[in-house]
Amino acid sequence: MSHISINGVTVAYPVSISGVQRSGFAAAASALSFGRIGSDARGTQYVVALDNLKLNIKQGTRLGLIGRNGSGKSTLLKTIAGIVQPRSGNLTVDGSIGCVLSLGAGMDGEKSGIDNMRLIARLHGLYGQALDAAVDEAAAFTDLGPYLELPVRTYSAGMMARLSFAIATAKVSSILVVDEVIGAGDAHFIAKAGQRIMSLTEQSNILVMASHSYEILASYCSELLWMDAGRVRMRGGVAEVWGAYIEAMG
């Protein structure tokens, strides 16, 4: 039984303005002198990425995130995945997490595709026989064939996307969080990935996925969430929300 409950969550990124912010000694001087030295070390400015967000995602939901660049989609995905800590609010995430948030994250360009998959499978918590089985299965899923033996720095964005997605979904997790990277794959891969996602989410799992492509959203998602400046603007069926979004874009 997985579910995600987000209640009044605010996520804000600090923006460091002056060199003073980056200097430990300046901060110490400011603290020791009660703010008289280097007083601009206090009063950090923030960019609010998620603004008092309220959201409830039940099991079996396949939620697509749409919105303009900078509306908070990636931040929401990272918050759900547990990578970013909210500044305030209540966040409950019930279930194991699998995520594909960036291309080639944690991959060593000099090592081969298969070696990278082995290491990333470990980061996902696999070991021993389960690890070998998962890596073999993921290797077959990528359809990269002999390219798997080549160093990852020779791969294109699409190949990286296939690699990342394959290994991220090798271990069945109850919540799958996918950022826009999947758009880099070719049509054949997107179809395959879609089938994989469908089978994963059939077993009362949750999918949260950000995308700019209507095709991907229509085939994978059961509902859409339109985000605007860190808030939920609209939530509903795919066609309905997409229509409203396109209209607002003008």
Binding site: A12, G43, Y46, R87, S88
Partner: peptide, 22 residues
């Protein structure tokens, strides 16, 4: 499974804002 229950800092709403940490 994890829960985060964090107390609020002072914030003024808006896109970019300033806050004094306390």
């Amino acid at each position: 499974m994890y829960k985060k229950d964090i107390n609020e800092h002072e914030f003024r709403l808006g896109g970019i804002q300033t806050s004094k940490p306390s």
